[in-house]
Design a protein around this nucleic acid. Structure first.
Lengths: 272, 272
DNA sequence: TCGGGGTCGATTGTATGCAATCGAGGTGAG
DNA sequence: CTCACCTCGATTGCATACAATCGACCCCGA
């Protein structure tokens, strides 16, 4: 569905604060996104009413920021200044602050008094833990869902399967990731437990984040490892070459193990 | 709108909204607590500055409301009007709203646009799910903690054990519950994983809530069941009496199964 | 008497303005 | 040249003020 006007300026958040990545891939998807997730402010024609009615903006802002974090618009470690967010999402600082509190409780950002809000780091260990947590919680939710699901929920899940199949054959990976989140979200809702549903839903967001952040990073690492291999070959150092390749394969396996990136994923893996 | 002085009235949250409990135990600890969790306003000597410095109040407010929810001051289903909270905790509505967002993300309250915020319900199934979740996550965190703990953290845990032993022998159950939460919180921090730590910490708060809410409710139910037993005896209905007693025992077992209520808790009583 | 519709009060949601606080940069002494 | 201190700009945190929305109550007609 065509969605509104869209800003173009995009305002890359980090002006060289360089906490996390060494500005590694500038192609993380920053300029790619078709929309910023909200009304995008008065960039176009006229001053138009401050905000279109119907939606309460605070929760919308929270969703928009979360989406942008997941999509890599705000990379880990980057600072989220309130006024900048204000301008970006077209609301005042108050709903922005509320959204940030939500995201803080969800673990997407960290904040310290008078020091501002920073996107949480997401190192390898964190990602590993997240996947472990999911591995332990989702079966629980699925069990509950199997017992309590409504026909509507089942139907929606089936529908998502079909959409995912389409997206998969068409190679629309971004859409696939979103469908994945949605699938787990609905599955969580179907568990019938408020607590479990909320937890698993938030978890699924984090997982989507992991995939979005970790896979490009993995690609980067992969090429760095390739470079190391070449170095070893150039140095004619058989042992080092062997070790580097072994590590490379191991890393690739690890990445693969994490792969079940879609509702249709029929993972057979043995969870080693 | 003189907001200044009074606070002592304590303002029981439900002015007849009667959603949740039938005002069951007015002694849940409402007037008992030595403090309401915050500065409690200028109830004492002079008008003194609106708030003592040092602490950022929004997060303090969130902690205070959470504590009050756990302690039963705001029972499940009760409405949390912003202005009332404002008055109670001595701040304006802005930090109150931010605190509510935090609590919403943590699952302690539910909110709908323009309908306000309500303390989440906590039925038996939810409690069961929470305990399941904890059963699955805490071992993970403990494993991580065993690998990554710092000596300071270990020391703090030992200290908590001692304090818990004291509280246990002294029979200070409320203190014991708080120590329990604290213990799990520190344990979670020791896991070294931001995600896991935050999750388990929030979970431990919820568990404390379950215990605080569920056990009194259990006591209530227990006496209701006692009454049913008496009724069955009065009616000279052996089958019904048998069934009721069987259910009663089963419930007590369930309650017992949930009981490990402290790091050192070795309570032997059989509930009822 | 009962149902439908409109008005008003109360509460939530947001914007603006001001006070509090922290880090960066400059300045002078040693 | 280094370091401590201090001033200032920028940003966060909060209080107030105003707009938007919903529920309750009342009035009216059948």
């Amino acid at each position: 569905m065509g969605r509104g006007v869209e800003v173009s300026t995009e305002q890359a958040p980090a002006s060289g604060d360089g906490a996390g990545e060494p500005d590694a891939g500038p192609d993380t998807g920053l300029a790619a996104g078709p929309d910023t997730g909200l009304a995008a402010g008065p960039s176009g024609v006229g001053p138009e009413p401050p905000r279109r009615a119907g939606k309460v903006s605070a929760s919308e802002v929270s969703r928009a920021i979360r989406d942008d974090i997941i999509r890599g618009v705000h990379p880990p470690g980057s600072r989220l200044a309130e006024e900048a967010l204000s301008a970006r999402y077209g609301v005042s600082r108050v709903p922005v602050r509320e959204a940030l509190r939500t995201l803080e409780a969800e673990g997407f950002v960290r904040s310290r008094p008078y020091a501002g809000v920073v996107v949480a780091e997401l190192d390898d260990a964190e990602a590993e833990d997240l996947l472990e947590i999911r591995a332990r919680l989702e079966p629980l939710g699925a069990g509950r869902a199997a017992a309590r699901r409504t026909p509507e929920q089942l139907g929606r899940l089936k529908e998502l399967l079909l959409l995912a199949e389409d997206a998969l054959t068409a190679g629309r990976l971004a859409e696939l990731a979103r469908l994945n989140s949605r699938f787990h979200e609905v599955l969580a809702q179907a568990s019938g437990s408020q607590t479990l549903s909320q937890l698993v839903t938030q978890l699924s967001w984090k997982i989507a984040w992991v995939y979005a952040i970790e896979l490009p990073r993995r690609a980067e690492d992969s090429w760095r490892e390739h470079a190391e291999i070449v170095q070893a070959l150039e140095a004619a150092d058989p042992e080092r070459a062997s070790a580097v390749v072994a590590r490379h394969i191991s890393q690739a396996q690890k990445a693969y193990r994490r792969r079940d990136t879609g509702p249709a994923a029929r993972v057979e893996d043995s969870e080693t």
